[in-house]
Write a protein that binds this DNA or RNA. Structure first.
Lengths: 131, 131
DNA sequence: GTTCAGGCTTACGTTAACGTCAACTTCGCT
DNA sequence: AGCGAAGTTGACGTTAACGTAAGCCTGAAC
């Protein structure tokens, strides 16, 4: 009943992740649940971190990147220099994503162009393959 | 001098790929260079196929998908049914790419939103991590 | 005649983020 | 006692597209 501590299953249900994932994150030092005997007990802190981890994933951050970011806050020395670095990481990631999207847009346009010619695209493929 | 046949190195230079990649494609049955003793000799047909393979990669087709497509043309039975299937594969891929781009756009917007608050984003991270 | 570039084959390594066993232990319940 | 549910720790498997290294061959150049 201690709402402060959650079992692995409660965590899985709450965040829609698998037990394996949580243990994996722990092995990668992204989470540090307490132990009651063998069992893991996740604290509010773990939940906060997991939330950030999942958000980071949506942004395309790797687990390793998230670990580094989380470590910065943990060390409590997230002063100017550290904050700026974090900010930079995020900006770089954003730039990456924008480049990626632009490339995707190009590819889509190119492919769409082919498709507009319908079966003609296929004929093009055939010519290229034959020649 | 036989412009019809190219060595592996000429191919690499012409298409900007590594020898390893060409041998890999061959092992996956995407290319079928001739042999002069040990050495591979790439024909015009191989060049056509490679061009398509690389184009396919830009479109996000997997090598396996390209192999299947190329096989269709090879079998020479690329009649209506086959053509329609090819067309469908391409359309599905296009839809996939569009979905992917939309997700990317969402993520970008979300991240941009965070960044617009500048260092405030970082504070948000800190609050979340702490709480 | 030897060295050297370039090619060849075989096979293991890489990266990310888990999935999927196998083999226990523990706990509450009957 | 016994049983099933739930949790735990290894440890190997997965996917894609090559990279990398080891060891061998071969023709051309000096």
């Amino acid at each position: 009943m201690d709402d402060d501590l959650m079992t692995i299953r409660e965590m899985c249900d709450a965040f829609d992740v698998t037990p394996r994932a949580l243990r994996f994150y722990e092995s990668k030092e992204l989470l540090f649940p307490l132990r009651e005997g063998q069992k893991r007990l996740y604290t509010r802190r773990d939940r906060g971190r997991l939330k950030l981890i999942l958000r980071g994933k949506r942004f395309g951050f790797s687990l390793e990147e998230m670990r580094q970011l989380l470590d910065l806050y943990d060390r409590g020395d997230a002063q100017e220099e550290q904050l700026r670095r974090t900010y930079e990481v995020a900006r770089e990631r954003l730039a990456q994503m924008e480049r990626q999207r632009d490339e995707l847009d190009e590819a889509i346009e190119e492919l769409r162009g082919q498709l507009e010619w319908g079966a003609e695209m296929i004929a093009s493929f055939r010519r290229s393959a034959a020649e």
